[in-house]
């Protein structure tokens, strides 16, 4: 019986010494994601800084998890957020409910919302998991590459 034990332990030790390591030392080291990885949403802007989102709520309509809330309002003189008449005054995504299916991206008629490989979305409270518009929107005027997430990190 002891012989079998040693034999089995031998297999374990052999694998430990010879095979390639699969563990990654996160957060010092980050996993390379696939080119089409879908994680956190980003709301894009036009080149002139106006928001692409027109607040049409089609993303919320397409969302199978019902995790998007859009409340629209009208662009007015001196307070223009997007081209056209309508913009999203409130845009919230509940990241706990989101299943990252990408239907919102699919439904968007103005290509305003995209899912990027930004997977570091853990928070300490449930409330903090409701991402608001200013968290989702691309910064302007100085967007950084990491704002869109990097597939090769």
């Amino acid at each position: 019986m002891i012989g079998e034990l040693i034999k089995g332990l031998g297999v374990t030790i052999k694998h430990a010494l010879t095979s390639k390591r699969v563990t990654i030392e996160y957060p010092e080291q980050k996993r390379t994601l696939g080119p089409r990885a879908r994680w956190r949403h980003v709301l894009l802007r036009h080149e002139d800084g106006l928001e692409r989102c027109i607040g049409c709520s089609l993303c919320a309509g397409a969302c199978p998890a019902r995790c998007i809330l859009v409340e629209a309002a009208e662009n007015r003189e001196g307070a223009r957020y997007s081209p056209g008449e309508r913009y999203a005054k409130v845009y919230e995504i509940n990241m706990l409910r989101c299943i990252f299916c990408g239907y919102c991206q699919d439904a968007c008629p103005v290509e305003a919302i995209i899912l990027r490989p930004i997977y570091e979305i853990s928070e300490y409270t449930r409330d903090a998991e409701i991402y608001t518009k200013d968290m989702l929107l691309m910064p302007y005027p100085n967007p950084q590459t990491e704002d869109l997430g990097n597939t090769n990190a």
């Binding site: 049409c56 309509g61 629209a72 008449e85 309508r86």
Partner: peptide, 9 residues
């Protein structure tokens, strides 16, 4: 009502 809700909501 303008812009306050979409019919499916």
């Amino acid at each position: 009502f303008r812009f306050r809700a979409r019919p499916w909501e």
